[in-house]
């Protein structure tokens, strides 16, 4: 099995992918084999600064190997990379579809931050 995390605007597999990482509404942590999932409400949405960093730590502590989202900023990217997590950006649509695409190998990892810092603040 493999645990992956998709940033989500809601707490189900039918929710939309949240384009932000650090300040997304919810982290959906999915077992790619069984599609069993855990929805973790993001406690860092209104954090003063460093939301990407603590969100990176949070998903790392959940033992995920891959993060699928719309965008990640430089600080979050650095954190995820240090935690050995593969980052996939540019994903939109429904969470479940994103997971399916990932399983089929249709998503490729990103080598750097996709947006500048402070992106998710607005």
């Amino acid at each position: 099995m493999e645990k992956i995390c998709v940033t989500s605007q809601g707490n189900t597999l039918d929710s939309n992918v949240d384009p932000r990482f650090g300040r997304c509404q919810c982290f959906i942590i999915v077992d790619t084999d069984t599609l069993e999932f855990e929805a973790v409400e993001n406690p860092n949405i209104s954090s003063g600064g460093g939301a990407g960093i603590i969100s990176g730590q949070l998903v790392s502590s959940k033992g995920v190997k891959v993060v699928i989202t719309g965008n990640v900023g430089p600080n979050a990217f650095q954190t995820l990379q240090a935690a050995g997590i593969t980052v996939i950006t540019g994903v939109s649509g429904i969470v479940k579809e994103a997971v399916e695409k990932y399983k089929k190998g249709e998503l490729s990892s990103t080598q750097g931050p996709s947006v500048d810092k402070k992106f998710g603040m607005s």
């Binding site: 600064g49 460093g50 939301a51 960093i53 603590i54 990176g56 954190t79 935690a83 050995g84």
Partner: peptide
Amino acid sequence: QEVCEYNAIAVLKGAILVFPEL
């Protein structure tokens, strides 16, 4: 990381990062 109020330090498994601008 626990005492930093500004999220300027991230401690991961076997790695530690400092974000000086925070």
